[in-house]
């Protein structure tokens, strides 16, 4: 892992751990169970490993899977970044970051390249990740086939027999009906030519970043009790068709704050006349670009 030069200003230092809790909240036995599942997940890229997810002190659907993974991989030396919608200051990101400050006394940062562990909901940072970094995704519905087939007994068989016909039919129906694949987020990917995987509800804009990424990508679904992973340098391909290749979103204008033309933009409504402003969804990317310019 390359040693980055860390400016102290961008790290909130480690703090005292709440003595009522074990390091990172989970007891050691729970961590062992999750740790075994994580190693299996890495060994079978894209396959959903069942794990006995615990009830966490935040609601199911609010990142309990990601939180359990982060709690199981953190060491006291880590620097944690938490984002939701690409931003560090969205309410749920704030809440999760505070949880780990309190229970793990961990150093935190808003800076993508400084972080050793990044927990995310719905985005992959714009800044390229490095080898040694770990990206932990919060996943609501880990089963990419779930909306085509609600039964776990059936979808498990489909994965077993690599029977992904239903998924291709669905995507192709979109094309014949709308001229496009009408999936804009949680766009399914094929991992190492074997498992179709749900990338979590990231915009499809972020899908290409998953492919051959030097960082380790871990996915946790707490309510559905599944863990899966993409090891570093692993082939991840968004499903598409020869006559309708996969393409990502593009905007007509750059970010109105930092001028970036290569980032995912959020639309902010400015007034009741419908005036809109387009700005980077990745707050760290936007801010660091703005700082360089000023």
């Amino acid at each position: 892992m390359s040693q980055s030069i860390i400016s102290p200003a961008i790290i909130s230092p480690a703090t005292q751990i709440d003595p009522n809790y074990n390091f990172a909240y989970l007891n050691e036995q729970t961590k062992k169970m999750i740790r075994r599942a994580l190693l299996k997940a890495i060994a079978i890229p894209g396959y959903q490993v069942p794990f006995a997810g615990r009830e966490m002190p935040m609601p199911y659907g609010w990142g309990t899977g990601g939180v359990q993974i982060t709690a199981s991989i953190l060491t006291p030396d880590d620097v944690l970044k938490v984002i939701d919608q690409g931003a560090d200051d969205t309410t749920n990101a704030v809440s999760i970051r505070k949880f780990f400050q309190r229970t793990a006394g961990i150093a935190t940062t808003l800076n993508t390249s400084t972080a050793t562990v990044i927990q995310t909901r719905h985005r992959i940072p714009e800044q390229k990740l490095q080898q040694g970094q770990i990206l932990v995704y919060q996943v609501p519905i880990p089963e990419p086939l779930r909306f085509l087939e609600p039964r776990e007994t059936e979808t498990r068989k489909m994965h077993a027999f690599e029977d992904y016909g239903l998924m291709h039919v669905k995507l192709y129906e979109d094309i014949s009906q709308h001229g496009h694949i009408a999936t804009t987020y949680a766009y399914p990917v094929m991992v190492e030519d074997r498992y179709v995987m749900d990338p979590s509800p990231i915009p499809k804009f972020d899908n290409p970043k998953m492919n051959n990424n030097p960082a380790l990508q871990l996915f946790g679904a707490g309510r559905e009790k599944r863990i899966y992973a993409i090891p570093p340098y692993t082939k991840v391909v968004s499903l598409d068709f020869e006559d309708h290749p996969f393409e990502i979103q593009a905007w007509d204008q750059p970010c109105e704050i930092c001028g970036a033309g290569d980032s995912f933009l959020d639309e902010v409504i400015m007034d009741d006349q419908g005036t809109r402003m387009f700005v980077c969804s990745d707050s760290d990317y936007c801010q660091s670009r703005s700082e360089v310019q000023s």
Binding site: P59, Y60, Q85, Q249, L265
Partner: peptide
């Protein structure tokens, strides 16, 4: 506990996914 968490998680921000849907609907 599972049901209430997942139903209520719709209160969390979904700006990014909604933006992706907006872009598609406008384009179509």
């Amino acid at each position: 506990v599972q049901a209430t968490g997942f139903v209520e998680h719709l209160k969390l921000p979904h700006y990014v996914d909604f933006q992706a849907e907006l872009e598609l609907v406008r384009k179509m």
